[in-house]
């Protein structure tokens, strides 16, 4: 395993995440895509830390912060999904069309 293997995985994950976030109609699906993008960054950080800058654990600690923040962000997102679902019983993004222009 070299650095390039890890980078390839993370780049693939990032692209899959972007693809999912842009094409999903379901809000939960979009959220999952965004989570993949965050995790791609985490893989990057850990791999760079291990292979390029092994002296300090900056990369690993940054990725711990990112994991925490991503979790907090998803909590807010799911709360919003619930708030809308209680009103109009749908989680499909194209049904959120009250605001236009």
């Amino acid at each position: 395993m070299t650095l390039y293997h890890y980078l390839a995985v993370s780049a693939a994950l990032f692209c899959i995440g972007i693809f999912g976030a842009l094409t999903r109609r379901n809000v939960i699906g979009i959220l999952m895509g965004i989570e993949l993008m965050f995790n791609a960054a985490n893989i990057n950080l850990a791999a760079f830390n291990r292979f390029l800058h092994p002296n300090a654990v900056v990369g690993q600690s940054v990725s711990l912060f990112i994991i925490t923040v991503a979790a907090a962000e998803v909590v807010v997102g799911l709360a919003l999904v619930l708030a809308i679902y209680r009103n109009i019983q749908t989680i499909y993004a194209e049904d959120y069309n009250l605001l236009k222009g």
Partner: peptide, 11 residues
């Protein structure tokens, strides 16, 4: 998420 990926590349 895009920004975080950028930060990881900067690192």
């Amino acid at each position: 998420a895009v920004m975080v990926f950028g930060i990881s590349l900067y690192y």
